[in-house]
Nucleic acid binder design. Structure first.
Lengths: 291, 291
DNA sequence: GTCCATTATAACGTATTCGTATAGTCGTCC
DNA sequence: GGACGACTATACGAATACGTTATAATGGAC
């Protein structure tokens, strides 16, 4: 039994004559005729009686029609779903991400991506980078974004490196400088990430290298929290220039020397190829992280 | 999109390798390969990634599989239903019949017919012959059985004529005769059908022709009722030899002369071809009515 | 490197599909 | 009753699809 046969059968049932059914399907009348003959032969049913040069559906045809129409609809539905999957309108996109990026950048990009994709199911889970790393390896997520370094590396990892910038309150005296060094910040109240963070380590080295006194007045877990403290005037600090950009509105941001490197990565599942949707979104995310 | 493609896809999803899927479908591995390639091309989906010489379903394949399997099942169901319809296991059989036949003969034949046809829906409606005639013309029934004559004839009517027999209680003195005539029944208490019935008319003519006195002691609507009265010893009567046979157990039945004709007919819908089931049952009914 | 299992491609015969041309059938209108 | 119109069925040919065998290509295991 072929779908084309069912299609012809349905058109014939709905329109009464082969001629009209043929027009509707954009094919010739003899095409319908042989198609129906084939269907009758294969099913062993007499679907139509030839009566007065016309076709009249038998009771069997009416019974069979119900099932035939159902099968056709299911096939057409499958076709439609295929198109939806292809265009990314259907599917799911589960993303695990570390906090700073999932506060602003990620949801912004995601909602942009999900426009005109009504059937796309989106899930964002926010965990610290180590947990994100675990989650992606359990294959439960399509994509993950984590800060580096990871305790042990994952395959399919796309790294983005940023040189951190120094952020200062608008009215800060150092705001007039084009570039900030540890010398400029000697003894200046400073907001930093926690002691365990690579950023902390790098800053400590930088200040010691320059022989400047690093006056840490606050330690935070996230850049976003640090930004808020700086905004409140508690001190100065450093941030990455992209992910944390939304939090530095109203602050002055200047290049910092020496380079304090902040690295994040897009992680993909290892054992399974990522879905097309995930790849597409990864592309958008990549552009967003490069900007 | 063709069913064969979906079939190959399903087999491949279920069995992992093309080689095994091919075995399962009784075809060659290259056949599966080209089939899948065609499906991927037509749907525009990358369904499998070639990884280490093996195939691995993509997330898209998993999404699509749900719909593909559903469509396949619907098609297979349609196929199965077609087989059921063909063999008469599925369908409906609505029969309108006059009382005498619907008391015993019809349900007996029907239940015999419906054995090993679990999905066949049966409906019997009992009305007098005139109403039965109306009902069949409204196309709501697949078959009807009515007594003749009908006020106006229907097309597709298959007539069965019977010569009525004389029935007598077992101990009746006339039981020793091989054949009964009105002369034998001169003045004998007689149970007959109602005055309007053709049987009544024929009997009246017969007795008058033979110059015998017709001693009617009871008039009934149905042969079955008449039979019961005779069994009770109220008198003698006549019945048809086939439809009413079940009611004459324990009675003596003898040929009656002159011929009293009883006619019934199987009626088919006029405007629509009868279903195969109806035709099949009509065959069984025909044999039952000839016996 | 060799063997084994797997998938992909090529070449080819057959079946299916669909078009055009044409014949057959029935009802209707004059 | 004959011509016409509307419809279906059949014949045949070209394009496509299907599925085969033979064979290449790939990657993992030893």
């Amino acid at each position: 039994m072929r779908l084309r046969q069912l299609e012809c059968f349905r058109a014939l049932m709905l329109h009464g004559t082969m001629t009209r059914a043929a027009e509707l399907l954009g094919m010739s009348q003899p095409g319908i005729s042989t198609m129906i003959a084939g269907l009758e032969h294969e099913t062993g049913l007499n679907l139509f009686v030839r009566r007065g040069g016309r076709l009249q559906p038998t009771p069997e045809a009416k019974l069979f029609y119900v099932e035939a129409a159902r099968a056709l609809e299911a096939a057409e539905n499958a076709s439609r779903v295929a198109a939806e999957i292809r265009s990314g309108r259907r599917g799911h996109l589960a993303i695990a991400a570390y906090p700073s990026i999932s506060i602003n950048l990620l949801p912004r990009l995601l909602s942009q991506f999900a426009k005109n994709k009504p059937e796309l199911q989106i899930k964002i889970i926010t965990r610290n980078s180590a947990t994100v790393r675990e989650l992606i390896s359990t294959q439960q997520f399509d994509l993950a974004v984590a800060e580096l370094p990871l305790d042990y590396p994952t395959s399919h990892m796309e790294v983005f490196s940023y040189d951190c910038m120094c952020m200062l309150p608008h009215a800060h005296p150092l705001a007039k400088l084009k570039q900030i060094t540890p010398d400029d910040l000697d003894g200046v109240p400073f907001v930093t990430l926690f002691r365990g963070d690579p950023i902390y380590q790098q800053l400590a080295s930088a200040f010691s290298e320059y022989g400047a006194r690093w006056n840490v007045v606050a330690e935070t877990e996230f850049f976003s929290t640090a930004c808020q403290l700086v905004t409140e005037g508690r001190g100065v600090g450093i941030v990455d220039p992209v992910v944390s950009k939304p939090f530095t509105e109203g602050l002055v941001v200047r290049p910092f020397k020496p380079r304090i490197q902040y690295q994040i990565a897009i992680l993909s599942p290892t054992h399974e190829a990522p879905s097309q949707v995930a790849q597409d979104f990864a592309g958008l995310l990549r552009r967003g992280l490069r900007a």
